[in-house]
Amino acid sequence: MIANSALPNRKMLTFISRRAPYGNGAAKAMLDMVLSAAVFDQQVNYVFMDDGVQQLRRGQEPAAIDAKNLSAAFSALPLYEVSNIFVDSESLQRRGLSPEQLVIDIIVCDSDKIAELIRQSDAVFTL
């Protein structure tokens, strides 16, 4: 990081994860962005929407396809002080998932909340 006292050192960044895990690298790439923003002490919102909610499904055994378990990393998010983690209720509902079937305790929200997070954020990343 380049130290420059004239710059703001903290922004609110929202990351909207919209892809299922394992089929491609998008979900992992988004997780890495979230962790990186957290390490650099940014105010992070992590939102799961559309197929992104499949990342949270319990019982994943990606070793079967020689992939690393992404959902295991989510339980480490509190260590990075990432606690504003949201899942879109409509995306869950359309995929027949209930909050009890998810790997972590997470804030179930509606699209108005996601719209509000976007409005409050300095920058928004989707992947």
Binding site: R18, S111, I114, A115, R119
Partner: peptide, 12 residues
């Protein structure tokens, strides 16, 4: 793709 649908759900 659901990109437009996602956009329309959160655009205000």
């Amino acid at each position: 793709s659901d990109a437009l649908a996602a956009c329309l759900r959160v655009a205000r």
